[in-house]
Simulated assay, not measured.
Amino acid sequence: MHNDDLIKRAVLGQFDLAYLPLIETATGRVIGVEALSRWGDASGGWLHTESVMRQIEGTSVEPAYVRQLLGKVARDWELMVEVMRGMVMAINVSPYAFTLELVDDIQRHWPETRLLEVELTERMRVYDYGHVDGVVECMRNLGIAVSLDDYSGTPYCVSKMVGIEVDCVKLDKSVLTNLKSDRYTFTNATRLAKSMGCQITAEGVETLDHLRIVSEAGVDKWQGYLATKPLFISELLAWLKDTECRFDLPEEKLQSA
């Protein structure tokens, strides 16, 4: 799809949303969801979301896209809380759009700020984060949690974690994918985050072995295909009702993983 078409659709809110549940490790409770944009093409298929977002993030279009995103997730969230009270919504925002204007947009569009989490994406490797502290303070005053996405424990990620003083870090799924050949990175990443007082969310939990490892490491929350793929709102509501908002796994299966 031509870049101009994507920009127009982003500004007008012509995209869909899917939601990936967030599971509390200690209890198996579903405590929230992450909103993920989905972009259809003319043939009825779906464009690769990562490539679409690379064209939007860090451009003047992103604030308008995030504004549309907020409106969409606020409407869907109202349906979710009918099934589960206290549902937390997580949205992804690049440092470019992480501004005081975003705080204003959240206050206009979002009904309950303490149940919103803003994830700072790391796709933009070269960016001035100098403005972020003031925005984080404003968000905290409203009860909004701030997370660092795609955290891998590298010096670059650690510097951002320390500099921004985030509430939570999201372990990049590559940390679990490469676990067999690189256990040190996982151990180091989790220890560093905990030493800074951050909560940890593990992305890409796809197997019982992954779940056992993140549980033993004291990771607070996780998400991944072991629970479910990202779900459109109607699918999510059905899944929440069917599971009674829990991911139940027999203890013996986890121990034998």
Rank of each mutant, 00 (worst) to 15 (best):
I91K: 07
I200L: 07
T201D: 04
V158F: 02
T187N: 11
I23W: 00
T187I: 01
V162S: 03
S195Y: 10
V66M: 07
R140E: 07
S94R: 01
S147I: 01
D4P: 06
C245Q: 05
Y184I: 14
M87H: 02
E119V: 06
R9C: 13
L176Q: 09
I233Q: 05
D172S: 08
D16Y: 08
A64E: 06
Q68D: 00
D104V: 12
G143I: 04
R85T: 00
I56F: 03
I106P: 00
S256G: 00
N141P: 03
D248A: 15
C168Q: 13
R114P: 00
S234E: 15
V33G: 13
M1Y: 03
V93C: 04
V66H: 07
D133N: 13
L36S: 06
M89N: 04
V219S: 03
E137T: 13
I144Q: 03
G40P: 03
P21V: 13
G224T: 09
V146C: 03
Y225Q: 14
E122G: 13
W110T: 10
R29L: 10
S174K: 07
L22Q: 15
E82V: 04
V61A: 13
G134F: 04
G153F: 06
V166H: 08
L12M: 08
L47T: 06
E57D: 04
M84C: 11
K72H: 14
C138V: 05
I7W: 08
D104I: 10
D128Y: 05
N178Q: 14
V33N: 07
M161V: 10
L211R: 07
W39A: 10
Q14P: 11
V205H: 10
S256Y: 06
N141V: 08
N178Y: 11
L249I: 15
Q199T: 15
T185D: 08
E50H: 12
L116I: 09
F98W: 03
E244L: 02
K253P: 00
G130D: 11
M1W: 04
R29V: 08
T154G: 08
E165M: 12
P230G: 11
S174V: 09
H210F: 06
V88H: 12
G218A: 05
S215I: 08
I91Q: 05
V83E: 07
E62A: 02
E216A: 10
Y225F: 15
E235K: 13
S37W: 02
R54Y: 03
G86F: 02
Y127P: 00
Q14W: 00
S60T: 14
I164L: 12
V166A: 12
V158G: 01
I91D: 03
L171T: 09
L47G: 01
T25F: 02
E252V: 14
G44E: 05
S147V: 01
D242F: 11
S159G: 05
I31W: 00
L120W: 02
E62V: 06
L69A: 09
A217E: 06
K8E: 14
G134P: 00
V219T: 06
W110F: 15
L171M: 11
P155H: 12
L69W: 07
Q255C: 10
S152K: 09
L237T: 05
G44A: 07
I213V: 14
I23E: 01
D150R: 02
G45P: 07
E57V: 01
C198V: 01
N141S: 14
